[in-house]
Simulated assay, not measured.
Amino acid sequence: MTSSPDHSTYLKLAAVTMIWGGTFVAGRYLATDLEPLLAATLRFLLASVALLAFMACARVRLSRPDARQFVRLAVLGFFGIFFYNLCFFYGLHYINASRASLIVALNPAVIGVASWLLFKERLGAA
């Protein structure tokens, strides 16, 4: 018995791929006209508004973090989202979109190789 492929899943995956790939082209276009700090700030603010609007439409309630959790979330948001976008737009000032997408796509492999090299070095030192 063979199951038929879920075409909507493949369409969603293709859409995500096109949107993610289009981010580099749109970022390169913006990087020529806007300062990286302004572009990163606008992207972060627009994404935040879109996410909050989606959550309001879906009636998703936000949990209220305590002060310690809020500080952690703020630091993670700054470095994981805002600083990434700042570096993204700053980098697009100097290289084209295809090279930028290749650099971002290679990050997990580079991190894996670097981790393996550090682990190997530590084993040799022990």
Results as ranks from 00 to 15, higher is better:
Thr23Trp: 02
Gly77Cys: 15
Leu46Cys: 05
Arg59Pro: 12
Ala39Met: 00
Glu121Asp: 05
Asn96Ser: 11
Glu35Trp: 03
Ala114Ser: 15
Pro108Phe: 06
Ser48Phe: 02
Val113Phe: 09
Leu117Ser: 04
Leu102Asn: 09
Ala15Arg: 14
Phe70Pro: 05
Ala97Trp: 10
Asn96Lys: 11
Val60Arg: 14
Phe44Leu: 02
Ile81Arg: 03
Glu121Phe: 03
Phe89Gln: 06
Asp6Arg: 14
Asn96Val: 10
Leu123Gln: 13
Ser101His: 03
Leu62Phe: 13
Pro5His: 06
Phe83Gly: 02
Ala109His: 01
Ala14Trp: 01
Leu73Ser: 13
Met1Arg: 10
Leu46Arg: 00
Val25Asn: 10
Ile19Met: 07
Leu76Arg: 12
His7Phe: 13
Leu13His: 06
Ala40Leu: 07
Ala26Trp: 02
Thr41Trp: 03
Ala109Tyr: 00
Arg72Gly: 12
Tyr84Val: 02
Val104Arg: 03
Asn107Leu: 07
Val75His: 13
Ser101Ile: 04
Pro36Asp: 04
Gly27His: 00
Thr32Asp: 13
Ser98Asp: 04
Met55Lys: 11
Gly80Val: 01
Leu34Asp: 08
Val16Trp: 04
Ala50Leu: 10
Ala74Arg: 15
Leu92Tyr: 06
Gly91Arg: 05
Arg59Lys: 07
Leu52Trp: 07
Ile103Pro: 02
Arg99Met: 08
Tyr90Ala: 02
Leu30Trp: 09
Ala15Lys: 11
Lys120Ile: 00
Ser8Phe: 07
Gly21Cys: 13
Pro108Gly: 07
Leu38Pro: 01
Asp66Asn: 11
Pro65Ala: 07
Ser3Cys: 13
Arg61Leu: 12
Arg72Asn: 10
Gln69Arg: 15
Gly124Thr: 11
Gly112Pro: 02
Phe70Gln: 09
Leu118Gly: 00
